[in-house]
Write a protein that binds this DNA or RNA. Structure first.
Length: 397
DNA sequence: TCTGGGGTCCTAGGACCC
DNA sequence: TCTGGGGTCCTAGGACCC
């Protein structure tokens, strides 16, 4: 049976959502009607463009541009900070709305969802009509616009939602790919990034059609699995399904670009503690254990290095993770100037799957108790209220 | 270049085992 | 030792996405 997929993508999500929030709070200027961007704090060296208004876009401002570049392109640009709590709320409301249409909803990112309506439409119901209805409902209920892609292939639905914006419904059925997809330049293909483009160009592949018509075996020979994947995508044969079961995370990470380069390990350790606190807290909120700990450093030359360690025992305690993270940092740090430090836990497993080994319980009990207490305080008073006493030595001398 | 942060997936090479 | 080949696990790094 022919599948019925929708891909819904919020237009300029972060900027639209911030604009609405500010209007609600009495601001008279709609960020969407002026040259504006959502950006990080330059004084903390987080200064890049996260989202832009359509007017800002007309000045040539692109996502991930440093803000000083955005200012060069448009001196009158208004830079506004992000409000991730608000974004999470809008995302949740959207998701709830989609569940009225089908239980097969996949949250692909904070501002994108896939819907599988194959078994949820009445015989006389038209998929495009439903798409338009959803789009209009969102606009009327929340005050922001979306694009909806309609297709019988999941990835084609995603590509379709990226066609002309904003506030549009586009179809890209498999039967339409020759006319609507193949003429597009290769860089507009989903999953084709700037590293692959030169290599594809050298093979004479300039359009998505060129890719689709290249021999499958040649793509596999040159790009391996990845080559086969993008070849299928270009041919409208992704075969992918909507993953609507709530997906458990496979890893949880936290990293920060520090306000100034750091050249000593004691200072790095202090930040490492904060990062591990956050990561371990989120890990416990997911009711999961980690089996791998990873520490990453980026130096002032933007060179990135990382070390990871598989744990002997799965854990969710801050202390266990911190002990390993400190070891990894020590191994990793060669004395240069550090711009970014990050911690990740990987190889996550669900708690209920765990075979309780009585051998690793006693010494863990104390740390578990500490974590539970801290988590409760965080829930009551907010995430930033409490931080474990860090390495006091580095503050004393 | 004054260049963020959160993810997923893949690959290549080394260690180790039989 | 002038040392095969296959499988698995682990690690580091990179490409890509939003």
């Amino acid at each position: 049976m022919k599948k019925k997929f929708l891909h819904i993508d919020v237009n300029n999500a972060f900027l639209s959502w911030t604009a609405i929030e500010r209007l609600k709070k009495g601001d008279t200027i709609d960020l969407r009607t002026i040259p504006s961007v959502i950006g990080g704090d330059e004084s903390k060296r987080h200064g890049i463009v996260v989202a832009k208004s359509n007017i800002a876009k007309k000045f040539g401002i692109k996502t991930a541009d440093p803000i000083y570049i955005a200012r060069k392109k448009c001196p009158s640009i208004l830079v506004v900070p992000a409000d991730y709590d608000a974004y999470r709320r809008y995302s949740d409301s959207l998701y709830k709305l989609f569940l009225e249409y089908t239980e097969k909803v996949e949250r692909f990112s904070i501002d994108e969802c896939f819907l599988d309506l194959t078994e949820y439409l009445k015989p006389d119901e038209d998929l495009v009509k439903v798409a338009i209805e959803i789009k209009e409902r969102i606009k009327n209920t929340f005050g922001f616009t979306v694009n909806v892609g309609v297709s019988d292939d999941k990835i084609l639905a995603k590509v379709a939602s990226d066609f002309e914006k904003p506030d549009k419904v586009h179809t890209l059925y498999k039967s339409e790919i020759e006319e609507k997809l193949w003429k597009l330049p290769i860089d507009e293909m989903f999953m084709v990034g700037k590293k692959s483009i030169p290599k594809l160009n050298r093979m004479g592949i300039k359009t998505i059609g060129d890719l689709a018509k290249t021999e499958k075996t040649i793509m596999i020979k040159n790009f391996g699995k990845y080559g086969y994947m993008i070849w299928r995508y270009a041919n409208g044969e992704s075969g992918e399904e909507v993953n609507y079961q709530e997906e458990k995370p496979k890893g949880i990470g936290n990293s920060i670009t520090v306000p100034y380069d750091i050249g000593n390990i004691d200072e790095l350790n202090v930040i490492l503690v904060q990062l591990v606190e956050k990561v371990a807290y989120r890990l416990r909120k997911h009711d999961m254990y980690a089996t791998v700990v990873n520490v990453q450093l980026k130096n002032s030359d933007f060179k990135t290095v990382s070390h990871q360690k598989k744990l002997d025992i799965r854990t969710d305690t801050t202390k266990d993770i911190l002990d390993v993270a400190k070891e990894l940092l020590k191994e990793l740090y060669k004395g240069d100037l550090i711009r970014l430090i990050g911690v990740r836990v990987d190889g996550l497993v669900e708690k209920n799957e765990m075979q309780l080994s009585i051998f690793d319980m006693p010494e863990n009990t104390k740390n578990k108790k500490i974590d539970e207490t801290i988590d409760r305080l965080k829930e009551r008073y907010g995430e930033n209220i409490i931080t474990r006493a860090t390495d006091m030595k580095s503050n004393k001398d």
